[in-house]
Every structure is written in structure tokens, then in C-alpha cells.
Computed example of a mutant assay.
Amino acid sequence: MKVEIWSDVMCPFCYIGKRRFESALAEFPQADQIQVEWKSFQLNPQMKTEPGRSINDYLAETKGWTPEYAQQVNDQVTNMAAEVGLEYNMDKAVLANSFDAHRFLQFAKTKGLGDAAEEQLFKAYFTDGRNTADHATLIELGTAIGLDAAELKAILEGTRFSEDVRRDIYEAQQVGARGVPFFVLDRKYAVSGAQHTETFLGALQQSFAEWEKANPKPLVNLADGANCIIDGQCD
């Protein structure tokens, strides 16, 4: 059964949601039958990459907050992340347009490395304070998970996988995603936000039960012996 997850690199709740969903999968007996696909979403397509600019200043400007309130919000999110074992260093976060990071993800997906790429991007942004729009950084992250550096460099210098990113963003609109993280299970059920593990587990159980009924496993024939078939012949 497929679970599609729309997310953006700069979304703090997406990384937290990833960990909580992973915890739910760890408790789910049929986890080996779940196929997870990461999907692209841009919270701010017009964002300029501005290394050195405070994320608190950015939030204050875009949301109408004071820098002090933005700091409070980031502190709360940092504490929430710590509860699931993540280290957020929001003071080090580099404001970066995520489009090329999503192209990096799309390429990684073609190699079966979508989840690994998503993990690298989140850690780079929230923990390590890396510039996730910088091509050299993305190539370093890619080689760390087994992508070919030369191929990735050529992709980033061109426009490949741009349409894949745009297609995911369009699909998000079609399935009703207005924010991220947004989880779609078997294209039937949706879970919005970084829900608690119990919520994800319940969603997995409900959607998988229905999926399993619609996709019964063929019987495994353990032994052949003498029998009679429909036309009456026996052997």
C-alpha cells in the first residue's frame, strides 16, 4: 500500500511528522507492505536564498510577528522536535528557496533513495545550518547517500526534474493539501500535520485493512499431490 507524503525542506513540522510516522511504522506489523513516497511542496515559491539572514526576522516580516515572538515560536518547535529525538538549531537555519532541493529529491527517488534524500535535507536545514539551495551542498548530500556526483551536478545545472516538482505541487492541490506535512494513504485517507504516533498508527490500520481486502494475496501452494480438476480428469 502506498503512502504519499507532501513536505517542504523548510517546514519544521515535516521533519517532526517524519519521525512520528516512522514510529508508527515501527509498531505496524505489515510495515514491509507499505511503500512510502515523498512528494514536493513549496511553502514559499518566491522565497529568496539569503544566507546570513535571521529566520526570526523572516518570520516577523512574512507573518507580522515581532522578532521576540518568532523566537518564542521557534523555541517551542525546537522543544517539540527534541521530544522525537531531533536537534533543531533554528539560529543556524539558512533561508533558502527549496526548488532545487526538491529537484534533488526527485532525482533521488528515481534511484530508490527518496527517504534518504529527505532525511539528508531535513538534517542539513534544521540541525546543521546548511544552505539547501547551494548546489555544492546538495551534491555533498547526494554523494553521502550514494548518488553519482557528476550526474547530480549536471541535473542541478540544468532544468531536469523541474516538471516533476511542479507536478507534485499540482497534485497537492488536487488531493486537498493546503499545508504540509500532508499524508495520503492509498489515495483514500489523508492525515494533515505532524500528528502523534497513535494517530498515524490508527490511520495505517484502517487504510491497510481496506487495501488488503481489495488486494488479497494469492495462496502459496506448499505441496502438489494427486487430485481431480474441473473437467473430471484425475491423476
Results as ranks from 00 to 15, higher is better:
residue 1 M to F: 13
residue 4 E to Q: 14
residue 13 F to I: 08
residue 15 Y to F: 14
residue 15 Y to W: 14
residue 18 K to F: 10
residue 19 R to F: 08
residue 19 R to Q: 15
residue 20 R to M: 06
residue 23 S to M: 15
residue 26 A to T: 02
residue 28 F to V: 01
residue 35 Q to P: 02
residue 41 F to N: 00
residue 42 Q to G: 02
residue 43 L to I: 08
residue 47 M to H: 05
residue 47 M to V: 13
residue 49 T to A: 04
residue 50 E to H: 13
residue 54 S to Y: 12
residue 57 D to Y: 13
residue 58 Y to K: 13
residue 58 Y to D: 10
residue 60 A to V: 10
residue 62 T to H: 15
residue 63 K to Y: 10
residue 67 P to Q: 01
residue 73 V to D: 06
residue 74 N to F: 08
residue 77 V to D: 00
residue 78 T to V: 07
residue 79 N to M: 05
residue 80 M to H: 11
residue 80 M to F: 10
residue 80 M to D: 13
residue 82 A to M: 09
residue 85 G to W: 03
residue 85 G to R: 09
residue 86 L to T: 05
residue 90 M to L: 15
residue 92 K to I: 11
residue 94 V to F: 04
residue 98 S to I: 06
residue 99 F to S: 00
residue 99 F to T: 00
residue 105 L to Y: 12
residue 106 Q to N: 12
residue 106 Q to S: 15
residue 107 F to S: 02
residue 107 F to K: 10
residue 109 K to I: 13
residue 111 K to E: 11
residue 111 K to F: 08
residue 111 K to M: 10
residue 114 G to A: 07
residue 116 A to C: 04
residue 116 A to N: 09
residue 120 Q to G: 00
residue 121 L to I: 10
residue 123 K to S: 10
residue 123 K to T: 15
residue 124 A to Q: 01
residue 125 Y to I: 02
residue 126 F to R: 00
residue 126 F to H: 01
residue 128 D to E: 15
residue 144 A to S: 11
residue 148 D to G: 04
residue 153 K to M: 06
residue 155 I to V: 15
residue 156 L to M: 06
residue 157 E to V: 12
residue 160 R to W: 08
residue 163 E to G: 08
residue 165 V to T: 03
residue 166 R to M: 13
residue 168 D to E: 02
residue 169 I to L: 13
residue 170 Y to K: 14
residue 171 E to M: 10
residue 172 A to K: 05
residue 177 A to F: 08
residue 183 F to D: 01
residue 184 V to R: 01
residue 187 R to P: 06
residue 187 R to K: 14
residue 188 K to Y: 00
residue 189 Y to H: 12
residue 191 V to S: 07
residue 193 G to Y: 04
residue 194 A to Y: 05
residue 195 Q to K: 11
residue 196 H to K: 13
residue 196 H to Q: 15
residue 197 T to Q: 12
residue 198 E to I: 03
residue 198 E to P: 14
residue 199 T to I: 13
residue 203 A to F: 07
residue 204 L to Y: 11
residue 205 Q to K: 14
residue 208 F to W: 14
residue 210 E to A: 08
residue 212 E to W: 14
residue 215 N to F: 01
residue 215 N to W: 05
residue 215 N to G: 09
residue 216 P to E: 09
residue 219 L to M: 09
residue 219 L to Y: 09
residue 220 V to Y: 09
residue 224 D to T: 15
residue 230 I to L: 11
residue 231 D to C: 10
